[in-house]
Design a protein around this nucleic acid. Sequence first.
RNA 1: GCCGGCGUAGCUCAGCGGUAGAGCAGCUGAUUCGUAAUCAGCAGGUCGUCGGUUCAAAUCCGACCGCCGGCUCCA
Length: 631
Amino acid sequence: MPVVTVEGEQVSFEEGESYASLLEKLSPKKRESIIAVRENGSLKDLTAPVMDGAEVSWVSLSDPDGLDILRHSTAHIMACAVKRLFPEARVTIGPSIENGFYYDFDVPRPFTPEDLEKIEEEMGRIVESDLPFERIEVEKEEARKLFQEENEPYKIELLDDIEDDRVSLYRLGEFVDLCRGPHIPSSKRVKAYKLLQVAGAYWRGDERNPMLSRIYGTSFPDRKELKKYLTFLEEVKKRDHRRLGKELELFHIAEEVGPGLILWLPKGALVRKIIEDYWKDEHLKKGYEIVYTPHIAKLNLWEVSGHLQFYRENMFSPMEVEGSQYQIKPMNCPFHINIYKTKMRSYRDLPIRYAELGTVYRFERSGVLHGLMRVRGFTQDDAHIFLTEEQLEKEIFDLLDMTIDILTRFGFEEYDIYLSTRPEKFVGTLESWEKAEGALKSALEKKGLEYAIDPGEGVFYGPKIDIKIKDVLGRSWQCSTIQVDFNNPERFDVTYIGADGKEHRTIMIHRALMGSLERFFGILIEHYAGAFPLWLAPEQVAVLSITDRHIDYCTKVAERLREEGFRVLLDTRNEKLSYKIREAQVKKIPYALVAGDREVESGTVAPRKRGGENLPPMKLDEFIELLKNEL
RNA sequence: GCCGGCGUAGCUCAGCGGUAGAGCAGCUGAUUCGUAAUCAGCAGGUCGUCGGUUCAAAUCCGACCGCCGGCUCCA
C-alpha cells in the first residue's frame, strides 16, 4: 500500500485517492478550514491524487498561501460572473494581490460602479450553487483550440509564453480559464468578498497596449475579517493627509498656482520650521556643514552631470536668459560638487559633509500627482558626503545611526531596509562596486540591522541602502536613501590629495533621511492622524476662559506660557466652555487649559488632554514642568 | 500621458431642462455659561473655463483645466 507523510506522520492511502478524501479520513474537523495541500513544497488542489512517498502539509485559510488561493479563486468566480453578464468581455489575467485580487477584462465599455453591484450579485449565485473548481490538464494545442473557439485572444497570447507542452485549465461551471492553480475545491468555500473599484490598466502594464478595465476586489475567510479590512480602509480615508491638511489648515494646492506645487499655510509652515530647526541642529552636531544653492543653473551643468542624458524626462524645460540656457534644478548634487571644488582638498579634510534643505523641481506626469506625496516642487533634506574609499564603511555606519535616531524622534520605529546591488548597466569598476557593496553590507551588519538584498536594483552610478518606515497603520513608505556615487566624481573630476601627495578620486555619498519635506509631512499627518506630538504641534496649548471675568487671568497664563517658549492659542471668546473645548479638540491641540472662578481663586489651571482626559487642577509652574517633560 | 468618476458659497454636500439650496464656517446682536456644537438675524455663488443644442442650460453635447481611483512612470 502506498504511503504518504502528512504533517510529519506516515499514512497509507488507496491508489488514486484524493487529498480531500485523505483529509476527511485523518482530520474531518479541519474540513472547513483546509483548502489546499503543500506537496513536497508546492501547492496542490485538494482534488489532486495523493502522491506516493510525498511529504505533505495542509494549507488552511489562515496560511498566507491559503488566503492567496482563496482570493485567486474569488477572482475566477468574478470572471465567471462577468462572462455571464457581459458575454462580449474578453478575459485576461486575474491574480491575487496584497489585500485582495483583481481581474482585467477587455470590454467595449468600461465597467461602472453599477456594474459592480450586478457582478457581485451574480457572484453570490455562483457561490451559492457550490460549483466545483475542476482542474483539467491538456496539450497546449488543445488549449489553443479551445480559446480560439471561445474567442479569447489574450489567453492565446499567454499560452504562447508558456514553455511546457501541457498546460492546466480550471473549469468553474461554464467558465474555463487558463490557470496554474491551485484553487479552492468549490465556490461555496468563499465566505466574505467585496468588489471595491474599477480602474483602467494596460494589458501587461505597457502603455502601448490596449487599455483594459480592471476590477479590484477582496475576499476573506469570514465576514468579520472582511469587516475589519473595510474598517481599515475607512481609517485610511479618515487619515488622508489631503483631507486633514485642509481641515487643520496645514497646506493648500491651488489650481491657480499649478498642480503639484504646495502652498504651506501658516500652521503647516510652523510644523515645517520645527522639523527644519531640529534637522539643522542634528546635522551641525554630526559634523555637517549647511549650504545654500540656487534654484536654477546653466544648462551645461546638467550636461556634465549626465542629468540631461539620463533624467531629461523628469526635468522642466530649460529657459533662455541673455542668450544662455538655464535649467531649474531637479537635484542638488552638482551645486555641492561645485562647493567642494572651490579649493584643493586634502585627505585630512575628508569626510566633508554638505547638507541642504534644497528645493528641487521635477516634471511628473499629471496623472501621478498626489497631495503632498507626489509633487512637482519639493524640498529634499539632502546631503552629499565626500570621502575616501577607506572611510566609506564607518561613514555609512554613522549615517545609519543618525537616520534611525531622526526617524525614531518622529515616531517611526519599524523599518524595512534594502540593499540594492549592481545593475546590468553600471559605471565605475567592478572592483569599486564590490568594495562599496561590501562596505554597505558590513555597516548594516555591524549596526545589527536586518535587511534584504535587492539584487541588480542599484542605480547605475552606485549601490544604495533604502530604508522604508512603517506607519501606525502598518503601511510602509520609502523615505531614507543612502547612495554611493562613482559617476559624478568622475564627470566633475572631483579629487583630493592623498597622503602620498598624489591626486585621488573622491567618492561621494548622496543621502536623504526624510526624502522630501512635503512627502514626509504628508506621512507624519497620516501617521498621527493630524494629532501631532507636543513638540511638533503647531498649537500646543489652548487657554480657555469660562466667562469674561476670567479673560485677564487667561491672558496672563497665555503670556507666561509663551515666555516659556510654548505655542499658545488664547480663546477668550464669548462662547460656552464646551464649544471652546470642542474646537480645541477638533484642532487636535495637545492640551486645553480651562480657567474659571476656581482657578483664578487658587491660582491654578485645569488641564485637559487632547484625548479627553482631565488632569487635576495644578499650579501653572507644575503644568509647565509637565509640558517640558513631554517634549 | 492613458482609462473611468467627479468639479454648485471658505468647507461638506443637495438640486440634474423652467427665476440657485442646506448645514458648518464668517459677520451683527442677544446670552456670561465648568469639559465635544446657545439662540436669532445678515451676508455670501458668472454652478471649473470656453463653445454648442434649446424659447429656456448648474442640469444635455463637445473641447480644455483641475481633482479623485487606477495604469504607466519614479535614471
